[in-house]
Every structure is written in C-alpha cells, then in structure tokens.
C-alpha cells in the first residue's frame, strides 16, 4: 500500500483562491490588467477541459471568451459561495453545453448502461496514447467528471456545483466512467 497513504495534490488550494479573489475584485472595477492575468491563469486549463467536451479547438476558444465575457460583466456578483475556479468552470461548462446543444443536438445523449467489466487494462504502456481515444467515446457527462476530477483536480462536491447536479450523480457518473473507460481501453489494447 504505497500510494494510498500519500494524498495526491488536489486542485489549486487556498492561496490560489485568494489570488483569484483578488483578481476578481479588480475585474469588478473593470481592471483590464487583472482580466489579462486571470485569463492567462485559466486559459490552458479551460481550453483542455473544453476540448474534451467539444472536441473542437475553435469552439473551445469561443466558449472560453464567452466565459470571460460573463466574468467581466458579473465579477462583482461573485459571493464566494464556492472557489473561484469552481465558478469559472461552472460557467464554462454551461456555455459549452449550450454550444453543443446548438450545434450537435445528437451529441446530447443520455448516459447509457456501462458495459461489462473486462480485464485490467491499466498496465499497458500506451495508456496515455489511447486515453484520448477512449475518453472521446464516453458520454460527455462522464468525460467531464473524469476531466474535472483527474485533470483539473476538483472535489466531488465542486464538480456537483459546476455541473449543477446532486453529488450522488457525480459519483454515479464517475463510477460508470471508470467502468466504461476500462472496457474501452481493453478493447483498444486488443485491437492493436
């Protein structure tokens, strides 16, 4: 049990949130320099997250700017009910969903039952390479939960806030995502 005793680094912590809050306060005063700093702090994370959601760079860029448009307009309304990053990712997620619904209603399918579990695929060295392919095959809700948990590092409760759903729904989506990903990665391994 070598890894379980070590807590892995979570999302940016209190210091980062303090910094974000300070920037948000300046943005509320229409400080373009603060906007510039916050934009660059979040652009890469949001781009990666929205690429996972939409699979299109141009859409990701459009959604990022729509997100920061809202931030610029409503920074003064932020009441610290959550961390700033949770608020920002929540806006981006909802904007992303809106865009997907507008462009590809067929993508907005409900989650399906996870397939049967198969043998452990994680030991494959090509995991990282296949991961992108496998993630793209997940329903978007499951993909988003995995991305927010394992790339951005948000907690279960924060993801529930971002996705505006119950905590148990996040847990269920994570459960299905893990099972399905395992199956998909095994399938990819077998096809090579």
């Amino acid at each position: 049990m070598h890894q379980a005793s070590e807590r892995r680094p979570g999302p940016p912590g209190a210091n980062q949130n303090e910094q974000d809050l300070a920037l948000l306060a300046r943005i509320a005063a229409q400080d373009a320099q603060a906007m510039h700093e916050l934009y660059h702090l979040y652009h890469r994370r949001l781009a990666r997250f929205l690429m996972r959601l939409t699979s299109r760079y141009d859409l990701a860029e459009e959604i990022i700017n729509d997100t920061f448009w809202v931030i610029w307009q409503h920074a003064a309304d932020f009441r610290s009910a959550s961390r700033v990053s949770t608020w920002i990712f929540g806006i981006a997620y909802r904007r992303g969903l809106k865009t997907l619904k507008r462009l590809r209603p067929d993508l907005m399918v409900e989650e399906s039952e996870a397939p049967e579990q198969v043998e452990e695929p994680w030991l494959q060295a090509e995991l990282r390479e296949w991961l992108g392919v496998a993630l793209a095959k997940l329903p978007h809700e499951q993909r988003v939960v995995l991305e927010l948990a394992y790339h951005v590092g948000h907690s279960c409760e924060e993801i529930a806030t971002i996705m505006q759903c119950p905590v148990n729904t996040v847990k269920t989506r994570m459960f299905h995502a893990r099972r399905k990903l395992k199956t998909l990665l095994s399938g990819l391994a077998g096809s090579l």
Binding site: H40, R44, M51, Y150, L181
Partner: peptide, 25 residues
C-alpha cells in the same frame, strides 16, 4: 486504487496541444 493512480497521472499530462491565449484575449 493503483490503476486509478495511473489513470490520474495519464490525465495530468497536458498533451501536445498548444493553446495561444494572447490572440484570443
């Protein structure tokens, strides 16, 4: 747990995409 650890580490990688933030800003 260990399998999820490997998945977590794989998903931490940023990949080869380069995002140009400044023109968008």
């Amino acid at each position: 747990y260990e399998a999820q650890g490997r998945l977590f580490e794989a998903m931490q990688a940023d990949g080869s995409l380069v995002f140009a933030a400044e023109p968008s800003f």
